[in-house]
Design a protein around this nucleic acid. Sequence first.
DNA 1: GATATCGGTTCATTATTTGAACCCTTATTT
DNA 2: AAATAAGGGTTCAAATAATGAACCGATATC
Lengths: 256, 256
Amino acid sequence: MGTVGKAISLLELFTVDEPELGLSELARRSGFDKATTRRLLMSLTGHGFVEQDAGTRHYRLGAGLSRLARIREARFPFLQTAVPLVRDLASSTAETVHLSEFGVETLVTVHVEHPARSNRVNVDIGQLLPLHSTASGIAYLAFARAETVRACLTGSLNAFTAHTLIEPAAISRSIGETRDRGYSICDQGFEEGVISVAAAIRAADGFALGTIAVAAPKARTNAADIAERGLAVMTAAREISMRLNGENLQTLRRQA
Amino acid sequence: MGTVGKAISLLELFTVDEPELGLSELARRSGFDKATTRRLLMSLTGHGFVEQDAGTRHYRLGAGLSRLARIREARFPFLQTAVPLVRDLASSTAETVHLSEFGVETLVTVHVEHPARSNRVNVDIGQLLPLHSTASGIAYLAFARAETVRACLTGSLNAFTAHTLIEPAAISRSIGETRDRGYSICDQGFEEGVISVAAAIRAADGFALGTIAVAAPKARTNAADIAERGLAVMTAAREISMRLNGENLQTLRRQA
DNA sequence: GATATCGGTTCATTATTTGAACCCTTATTT
DNA sequence: AAATAAGGGTTCAAATAATGAACCGATATC
């Protein structure tokens, strides 16, 4: 791995649950020498990608990242566009709604709304979603480039629960159903006791660029809930896609 | 400069005005060799910090940045907290309101609301604000650590207009007045014909971490407007500070 | 008071980065 | 239609930057 990759992989050690880490901890988790880790951190702090707490000396993600992310948002207003619809969906379903964008080979969670109830599905911002075993992943694959689907199906397919589909044929079938239905259903494929529905948010070329999903405890979810939420995520995804692409439904026809 | 710094400085070439750049352009502006530039870009794309347009082959900032910025926001909800108040202030003043956070040695603009009128002050997201010659900068310095103020006053002080204060004594006086008054006033110190007021947003330790400012064409701004906006930014800044620090006004006392 | 952990630093060794020259393709010019 | 220029991308010997074991001082633990 190049030096740049190492620096970035340091950044990726920070999570919502552990947003501040010490030098030794970072060195341990990254596997880099302490001196190396520190030098990388110094480079990153010098450009505002990392900040150091004056008191604890721990490191955290810095303002420079916010700055660049805002510049990106200004050109490609994914969050700005989608978050209001995520909120609406969260309040109408009273379940966890999460928004993902396709990043490097997988979906990354960029926004989450949790319902104000104790028994709920928790999803963290920044969480990575496997393509083959989540509602979001299947919804994404249903409108992804053929090569992306192939890469996913030929890769190693982890079984996260006893219900996870890991045979390429089964996943393929699920993708096909999703394409016909307009939304995906994932019944405990990623986490025991959780059932989710998701729909793809599509770019002007018709290919998926992200997803919106509703995740709920299976215990309180019946078939009618699923159908209702499925239509709701589909509608929301379509609305987001249209707003992103200048209200033009025509451009959402799949090409190639 | 280390390799990591070079990679980051490539990222910093992207702006709101030019969010997509080609390889040669990036090499030219960064001063790096084309091969070097490309290798850095490949490292960055590999981690989702940069994306390449399949058609034009141009590069743009990637989803990985959004992801990390959101993780940062989850721990330190600066934008989430401040943006609603920025909106309120924008609608009540009908002038440009911008929010900045202190990054590497200077303030970076992280959010802007523009009024729906043609003659207005334009501020871009990502824009860097010099400390000595903007309302935001002075407001920040009024509640910054002594070393930060010293570093600013002993550095090179650019005169952006004929009105820019560049004598350390004059700037010091302006900082003192701001501290007493609660908000700063900058009369064409950064741009001809623009007058701004700003107030510092403060961390739990009492030191400034960012600012909120109103910028307007001087032609339509009188003394009463300034006083009114001054109070408004001050109120907004105080409210943001309190929300960030758990509603606890006491913790905002300056210490050390 | 001995031991462990942490943040941080040093410097000879090692591995990565570098860039001039190159290829290929796509306009633009003559 | 040939020639020229500009863009994206690649190669490999030479130059430079990254590396990590050992070390320091401080703080916390036993």
